[in-house]
Deep mutational scan, measured.
Amino acid sequence: MQRVNMIMAESPGLITICLLGYLLSAECTVFLDHENANKILNRPKRYNSGKLEEFVQGNLERECMEEKCSFEEAREVFENTERTTEFWKQYVDGDQCESNPCLNGGSCKDDINSYECWCPFGFEGKNCELDVTCNIKNGRCEQFCKNSADNKVVCSCTEGYRLAENQKSCEPAVPFPCGRVSVSQTSKLTRAETVFPDVDYVNSTEAETILDNITQSTQSFNDFTRVVGGEDAKPGQFPWQVVLNGKVDAFCGGSIVNEKWIVTAAHCVETGVKITVVAGEHNIEETEHTEQKRNVIRIIPHHNYNAAINKYNHDIALLELDEPLVLNSYVTPICIADKEYTNIFLKFGSGYVSGWGRVFHKGRSALVLQYLRVPLVDRATCLRSTKFTIYNNMFCAGFHEGGRDSCQGDSGGPHVTEVEGTSFLTGIISWGEECAMKGKYGIYTKVSRYVNWIKEKTKLT
């Protein structure tokens, strides 16, 4: 034993070699072989497995989906700052455009905790909710729209109204504003409101030439003092309507412009014939205590009207009353817009006519005020429907199939267009061939041609 100890002390290297040989010859039971080890760690190889990531292109799944990435790591994937920024906006807080917040056709661009709407022409605001041009839906104005110097929408209202708090709607500024039905039992019968379409306001006024200088022999019209197929109006439903009495009662109609003036057809009036105007009328054979009678003290036909040349060209006249009318729910003026808007309103496509005229061709006159909704007829169809001249200051309205029309005794009465609950004068009943005849239409004086003249002559002093 002493000898062994001496050998170990003198030859430590020998001992180490012996131990190493023993270990190498022993069977290893701690580690699995290569094949079995792979069965336990069965993990798919990654895209760049075996390579240094710093030297390969980034992978979106590896960089940002398996674990949260930084902007720089995302930049490695896209290799483009702009594309990385677009991805980053949604990656950080989701897609803010998912709810489609942009209105009126706006395009949404996502941002971090926010979004941006790219608005089409005519709109602005956070969600493109603000109209900035009158060309689109009248700028959301209830009545009139004008573009300011910086191309912003400025709404306005006709006389007797003021802008509401929203700067879009119009509200009454006087007790009985024009064009409004205020009798409670008839307010439910107000005709369907007309909503502004998209309009090209630059070209809204037709490029028409008034044929002022045409000389033409007097034409022989049949029954051209021209509501057939209409309905009984309720008291106060058309408070701007008046009836004219002269040699015979209810020979023509008219509309209240203001307390002192009536507008009617020029062919209705004769110099030297006494005319009485009755406002607030409903049943011409009954006294309903809503009527107001006034005498006409002055007749002003349009300066281009000449019955000797043509009885229905420039067929418009103004009547001055001896005493002002007292405005109330049964006696209310009709609204008159400017030339541009009167023309736009007419193009809405349908209007209402009213009167006490004959209820059928050569038949009896109506006792109760009649009204009828009539569609506008395109000019080409209008011209083809008659052998008589249709001037540019006239328009056609009615039904091709016949059966409904204005008729004798309705002449001078109103053709009105309702705009968001307020009625505007767009025409004056003038003439036609018979009444409600198939293929024939009622012919009306186009008020847009005469609004400046009306307003100039009827100013209240």
Results as ranks from 00 to 15, higher is better:
253 G>N: 02
103 L>E: 08
134 C>Q: 03
103 L>G: 06
365 S>C: 04
211 L>A: 13
346 L>F: 05
327 L>I: 13
268 C>N: 01
149 A>K: 13
229 G>D: 13
36 N>K: 12
27 E>M: 04
359 V>D: 11
435 C>V: 03
330 Y>P: 01
155 C>V: 00
25 S>P: 08
5 N>E: 08
264 T>D: 01
416 V>I: 08
259 E>A: 09
247 K>D: 13
261 W>I: 02
383 L>R: 14
309 I>W: 08
284 I>Y: 08
38 N>A: 11
337 A>E: 01
427 G>F: 01
231 E>M: 12
253 G>T: 13
403 G>A: 09
100 N>T: 10
305 Y>I: 02
418 E>C: 06
332 T>F: 03
105 G>E: 04
357 G>S: 14
422 T>W: 01
135 N>I: 08
46 R>S: 14
269 V>C: 10
126 K>T: 10
420 E>V: 09
430 S>V: 13
308 A>H: 09
178 C>N: 01
354 S>G: 12
396 C>M: 02
255 S>M: 04
231 E>F: 07
430 S>W: 03
34 H>K: 12
406 S>T: 15
257 V>G: 01
94 G>I: 11
201 Y>F: 14
378 D>H: 07
221 F>W: 13
59 N>K: 10
102 C>G: 00
337 A>G: 05
414 P>S: 07
452 N>T: 12
187 S>H: 06
123 F>G: 00
30 V>N: 15
163 L>N: 03
31 F>H: 06
378 D>K: 08
447 V>S: 03
93 D>P: 08
365 S>K: 13
170 C>D: 01
388 F>Y: 13
88 W>Q: 15
298 R>N: 15
135 N>E: 09
56 V>K: 04
136 I>R: 10
265 A>T: 04
230 G>Y: 11
290 T>M: 08
345 F>A: 04
308 A>S: 14
8 M>R: 15
144 F>I: 03
194 T>K: 08
8 M>P: 11
185 Q>E: 14
16 T>Y: 12
176 F>K: 04
372 L>Q: 14
229 G>V: 08
112 I>Q: 14
15 I>Q: 04
313 N>R: 14
361 H>F: 08
440 K>F: 04
425 L>K: 00
112 I>D: 12
243 V>I: 14
201 Y>P: 08
380 A>F: 12
140 R>I: 06
218 T>C: 05
257 V>I: 04
44 P>Q: 09
332 T>S: 10
200 D>M: 06
461 T>I: 08
398 G>T: 03
266 A>K: 02
398 G>Q: 05
109 K>Q: 10
421 G>C: 02
360 F>G: 09
141 C>E: 01
280 G>W: 02
419 V>H: 12
203 N>A: 11
118 W>G: 01
383 L>E: 13
225 T>D: 15
32 L>P: 15
129 E>T: 01
187 S>Q: 11
312 Y>F: 11
438 K>D: 13
225 T>C: 05
22 Y>D: 02
299 I>P: 02
324 P>W: 02
107 S>P: 01
100 N>V: 05
396 C>I: 02
42 N>M: 09
305 Y>P: 02
323 E>W: 06
203 N>F: 06
106 G>Y: 00
247 K>R: 14
371 Y>P: 06
105 G>F: 04
41 L>P: 14
156 S>L: 07
323 E>D: 09
371 Y>I: 10
375 P>I: 08
159 E>T: 09
393 N>Y: 06
159 E>W: 05
